[in-house]
C-alpha cells in the first residue's frame, strides 16, 4: 500500500475514516492515455524531419515518453503532430485525417508554420494561417523548426494536460490549448532533470501542507487557541 500511495497518489486515495483505498477511474484512464500516445505519421515540411524522424531515432528517443509507436494509419493513432505549413489543398485532407483518428484525439502544432503560417504568413496565396483554422490544437510548440527537446517539452505538457483533463462523464471537455514554449537557457540536461523531478514529485501533493494553506485553516486554528485559553 505504501508503495502504491507513494507512487500514484492521484489514483489511490485514502478514505477519511480508514485504510480503504479506491482507484479513481478517470485518473487511471488519463494516466494510461497520457503515457501511450500513438502519433500519426503525418508531416508536411521541414518540421517533420525534426519532430517525427529525429525524435524517433536513437539520439533523442521518443520511446522514453511512451509515444514512439508512430502509426501510418489514422485509425490507430490518437496524436496528430502537425509538422509544417498547411496549404489550402492540404487543409481538407488534414481535417479528414483528424476526423478519422481514434478518440480522444490530441493535436500538437509544431513550428511557426503550423501555429500562424510563420514565414509564409504574408504574400502567400495558399498557406493557411495556422493549423487551428482547420483542427482544434491542444499544444503549440514554437520554433522554426523547434528543437527535439522543445517538442518533448510540448509532449510533456500535453501529457500533463491529459492527466488533468477529460473525465468519463464529460468527454471532450478538456483544458484550453497552451503554448509550450521552452524557456530560455534550458538545456537538454535540465530537461532531463525536470523530467526526473516531474516523474518523482509532480503528482505528489503534501496533504498536510496543502490543508494548512487553506484559508479556513487559520480561522480554525484561532478558534482552537481561543478555546484552550478559556
Amino acid at each position: 500500500m505504501g508503495v502504491a500511495l507513494g507512487k500514484l497518489p492521484g489514483i489511490v486515495e485514502r478514505f477519511p475514516g480508514g485504510a480503504m483505498a479506491i482507484t479513481r477511474l478517470d485518473a487511471a484512464i488519463n494516466l494510461a492515455r497520457s503515457n501511450s500516445l500513438w502519433p500519426l505519421m503525418f508531416g508536411t515540411k521541414c518540421c517533420a524531419i525534426e519532430m517525427l524522424m529525429a525524435t524517433g531515432a536513437s539520439h533523442h528517443d521518443l520511446a522514453r515518453f511512451g509515444a514512439e509507436v508512430a502509426r501510418a494509419s489514422v485509425r490507430q493513432a490518437d496524436l496528430m503532430v502537425i509538422a509544417g505549413a498547411i496549404v489550402k489543398k492540404m487543409a481538407p485532407r488534414m481535417r479528414l485525417l483528424y476526423e478519422q483518428m481514434a478518440e480522444p484525439r490530441y493535436v500538437i502544432a509544431t513550428g511557426s508554420c503550423a501555429i500562424s503560417g510563420g514565414p509564409f504568413m504574408y504574400n502567400s496565396y495558399t498557406v493557411v494561417r495556422g493549423a487551428d483554422e482547420v483542427v482544434p490544437v491542444d499544444v503549440y510548440v514554437p520554433g522554426c523548426p523547434p528543437r527535439p527537446e522543445a517538442f518533448f517539452w510540448g509532449l510533456l505538457t500535453l501529457q500533463r494536460m491529459i492527466r488533468e483533463g477529460e473525465t468519463i462523464r464529460e468527454p471532450g471537455i478538456r483544458r484550453k490549448p497552451v503554448m509550450a514554449a521552452l524557456p530560455e537557457d534550458v538545456s537538454l540536461h535540465e530537461i532531463r532533470a525536470e523530467i526526473r523531478a516531474a516523474l518523482a514529485n509532480e503528482n505528489v501533493i503534501d496533504v498536510t501542507q496543502a490543508a494548512n494553506q487553506k484559508p479556513w485553516a487559520r480561522k480554525v486554528r484561532e478558534w482552537i487557541q481561543r478555546a484552550s485559553l478559556r
Binding site: M121, Y122, N123, S124, Y125, R129
Partner: peptide, 15 residues
C-alpha cells in the same frame, strides 16, 4: 493565375 502581377486574392495578406 497567382504568379501574374495583377493577381488578386482576398485571402492573401500584404506585408
Amino acid at each position: 493565375y497567382p504568379l501574374r502581377k495583377d493577381y488578386q486574392d482576398e485571402y492573401m495578406l500584404e506585408l
